[in-house]
Amino acid sequence: MRMRLKGTDGLPGALGSLLAVAYALLPVIWIVSLSLKPSRELGNGRFLPETFSLEHYRAVFTDPQFPAAILNSLGIASITTALSILIAVFAAYAIVRLDFRGKQWIFYGTLAVAMFPQVSVVGPLFELWRTLRLFDTWPGLILPYLSFTLPLAVWTLTAFFREVPWELEKAARVDGATPSQAFRLVILPLVAPGIFASAILVFIFAWNDFLFAASLTSTDRARTVPVAIAFFTGSSQFELPVGSIAAASVVVTIPVIALVLMFQRRIIAGLTAGAVKG
């Protein structure tokens, strides 16, 4: 089934869209449904719960591990996002506007880093972090996240900076702005959609990461939600806590959805229309 993007295709188009949405959302609905079933119904194989219960939600929040993991996740992902965007904004601006030696190398170097298989650095990092006492700490996760999200942010923002007419900056300077005022008051607002877009991508990367979080943490000090969920234990070692896992999964999805909904309207390109002739 091919998806059509035209909105005027009538019934076939609508059906196609419905199919695609259903395909993407079914597992999500399944998880939500599981999280709302009381324990005794978990194995009944029905798509929708017969009775609704919040017992699994209560369970995951009474366990001190989960709230701690959420706090770790929020903190680590937020700090990663803030730092990554801050560095990427300046890097992308420099790549677009300044002429310096090795500019191309930096640009393609970042791309190379993004393509680097993450698994290959986990082992060495584990050893290194233990020596540097970064194992099981926030910085211990923020640092690798930065190195893998920066290329993404730099590339996205470079594309946005390229769209800004340079004359606007000149005009601001002539109008009496210092270089930093010109940047803050004129350039930055115009690349805001790019900043929001890359911030969301960076946040999602840091929020979803399992590999680094599983390898470089060991306790509640820095363990993030994806790992915490994987380490959930049932009442006995033979029981898989399906309900709690489902409830926790729903909870961790909420911040990401909220973030996207909040900023999606800001990510509308075309803000630069009308700056120069056209």
Partner: peptide, 17 residues
């Protein structure tokens, strides 16, 4: 910024936001 000169650019360079 300290020259007290004003300039009109060919592209007008209006701040779109």
């Amino acid at each position: 910024k300290d020259r007290n000169m004003a300039m009109v650019f060919q592209s007008y360079a209006l701040y779109p936001h």
